[in-house]
Amino acid sequence: MVKLIVQRLIFSVITLTIVAIVVFAMTDLLPGDWATAYFGRWATEAGLAAMREEYGLNRPATERFAEWLSNALQGDFGASLSRNEPVVELISFRLRNSLLLGGLAALFTIPLATLLGIIAGLRRDRTPDVIISTGSIVGMSTPEFVIGTLLIWILSVGLGLFPSITLLNPDAPIADLLPNVVMPTVTLTIASSAYLLRMVRTITINVLTSDYVEMATLKGLPRARVVFRHALPNILLPTINIMALMLSGLLGGTFVVEVVFNYPGLGRALVDAVSFRDVPMIQAIALLWAVMYVFFNLGADLVTTFLDPRLRSLRG
């Protein structure tokens, strides 16, 4: 068990190293360096040279990467180009806000999607399944900004229930944020439930048509015991990994929703950073997301290994 955890950790570290290289490379090596990107059309030779000097852009990429990484490991991502404040300070409240949004969305999505997926699987091809499955295709297909826009139209323009866009600063207290987080949460829940739900449905159907569920029925066990004791664990185990993917999506893929509602989270900040070519900010946010992704996958792997008797004895 310990060995397994160590092994997984090492793999995660390898993955993160590659991620760091890719993130750095993508922001740093694309045509034009920060300086040209920053000044854009208004670049002057003198301005460029001064900036390159200031940020040490004339040094080799490897050297700068090493420095960036070692600083990042110590929690220092440099200063934002557009705001001239340390990136970490700019990020911290936005991270909190994004976690609030993603966490709330996950809180609704996971039980809702799992439940609906299992119901659809249990009632396969009957009315509940047809409704749930068709609904999930619609939910899955509709882009987040479309769902968001429709919600604004109905809930805030039409019914006046919630503020259509957030006008708060990132460091606003959570209590103030709450009314603003409702519609983004609903949007994310609709969009991400659909995927999880469809996966759960497929797994449910496979488990229900398995020999061991048929056997449990033929032993005369009540339907409830067949479903809850024999089928459910086998449905939920493979779902854990999918949930991890979904979680990292909810915490790291939310910029469209945050822009639609002007929600002061990481995604909104990222889009701004991209517009302003604010490279240190982009790097920090991208790395943060990748860390979350790797962390959730690692967690899911460990949880599954711990819960699944087959994996447990296979991997000792």
Partner: peptide, 15 residues
């Protein structure tokens, strides 16, 4: 009672 063809797939793996 029934005794299935392939016991390895007819026994619930998580029990």
């Amino acid at each position: 009672a029934v005794i299935p063809q392939s016991a390895s797939s007819a026994l619930t793996p998580t029990m």
